[in-house]
Design a protein around this nucleic acid. Structure first.
Lengths: 239, 239
DNA sequence: CGCGGTGTTGAGACCTGTCAAGACGTGTGG
DNA sequence: CCACACGTCTTGACAGGTCTCAACACCGCG
């Protein structure tokens, strides 16, 4: 079940058999969680980190007005809160956007893992830095791209990230978010999400139906989004 | 000169004399840079990281339209591109917003430093994760807060960050950005920045004059911004 | 003294939000 | 099996926030 995560790592760097086994050994248990549950609450003390074996998670913040902003989406193979390893409390909630299978990694085991394999410590530090790069790209989207471009960018990003872990079928993938939740990622109201989606459809760029997204014209989508996957740091490096 | 950086670290965690000396020893040289210089270009290969001893830096991204978005501001004592230690190439530019004094830390020395003091490795990992938390807060601002609230939030954040490193004078601090540049942080045009600033002044929350910002009503500012410094992870922890 | 960058102001356009209502689909209880 | 409730999607009319364009004031500096 941890295969997706290993795929994601190996896309970037070499992982030995020994390291792989050590990572597996650091996992303590696996939990199933239903959709729309808050699995981590902002501010609570954490001594584990959670790896998403399947499903979708979101990092969210609630505002006084009742509005909510998603700062990142997580898919199969992602460590949802690896940053909790150093932060100990998170500044955001983590909620399930679909039914999820989640593996628990106690921090004490991670400490041991990283002592034994400093190489892995560096890799996981790298991984949290890629998360930060994704945050920056969302900042650029929210600050400077139009609703249409922003939405196109998100779908382009998700296609790449899902491809890495084998969760795509050609240019199509499951997309469990409601339009309301999509708006919470993009800083839009659900009404405007609806209209923007129609525009993407009208331009024959994307189809979204029955919780499944299909990219009809990848090049066109990238053009609208001004998408460049560089920030996902996909190139492979030897150590 | 590195005192500000040590203050910032010691605000969060204990640093021994020995560790302090080791950090100092990892520095290779100090450079002076004029305002409005690009000191790191997106995509270029890096084998050093830069600590800001004084001045202001910004992480920026340029778009095809000629627009620019700032994803984070750096002040005295910040490691501007510590994430380059694991990423090796950055997805953004780093530019000076004022004359700057910058200390260079070769990655090979950091490798050595972190091998000798795994505790410091954890701390610097923590520091890059706080940077990511700042990104998330900006995402919330850009996605959900009004121009007024967003600007108030930025000044509230900067006051806290500058206080830590002793760069404030009461509720006042030097603020070298032009209104254009401020807009590049907030996802606004310079025209709207101007009007929003006037509104903050009109409400007696902030004064901005001669490149110096003064918070006139901190509580009022926090209210408008819905500011909670939790995401800056200021509480002190023993190891 | 003139120039370029910065700050300021006004008018109008446009993008996105707000409010409200109805359509559709799915699950639940009677 | 039907009736209903609820969440989601869709649409329309209108409001409001922010942008665009343009002009001018101000100021430091060569």
């Amino acid at each position: 079940m941890i295969e997706a995560h290993l795929k994601k790592l190996r896309k970037r760097v070499n992982i030995s058999r020994e390291e792989e086994e050590a990572i597996r050994g650091a996992m303590s248990e696996v939990r199933e969680v239903r959709a729309d549950r808050t699995i981590i609450r902002r501010g609570e003390e954490l001594n584990t980190s959670l790896m998403l074996l399947s499903g979708w998670l979101a990092r969210t913040r609630d505002l006084a007005t009742g509005q909510r902003q998603v700062s990142e989406l997580h898919v199969t193979g992602d460590f949802a809160d690896l940053h909790a390893f150093t932060l100990k409390r998170l500044d955001h909630n983590v909620i399930t956007m679909s039914p999820c299978t989640i593996a628990v990694f106690p921090h004490e085991r991670l400490v041991h893992l990283f002592e034994r394999f400093p190489h892995l410590a560096r890799i996981y530090w790298f991984i949290t830095n890629v998360d930060a790069a994704i945050h920056r790209e969302w900042t650029v989207s929210l600050g400077r791209r139009s609703a249409l471009s922003r939405m196109a960018h998100l779908f382009a990003e998700l296609l790449v990230r899902l491809e890495i872990v084998g969760e795509t079928d050609g240019n199509s993938f499951e997309f469990p978010l409601t339009q309301q939740e999509l708006g919470e990622c993009l800083g839009l109201t659900s009404v405007h999400v609806n209209r923007t989606l129609q525009e993407l459809r009208r331009r024959n760029l994307i189809e979204l139906e029955n919780r499944r997204a299909t990219i009809l014209d990848l090049e066109g989508l990238h053009d609208v989004a001004e998408f460049d996957p560089f920030y996902l740091y996909l190139e492979h490096r030897d150590r």
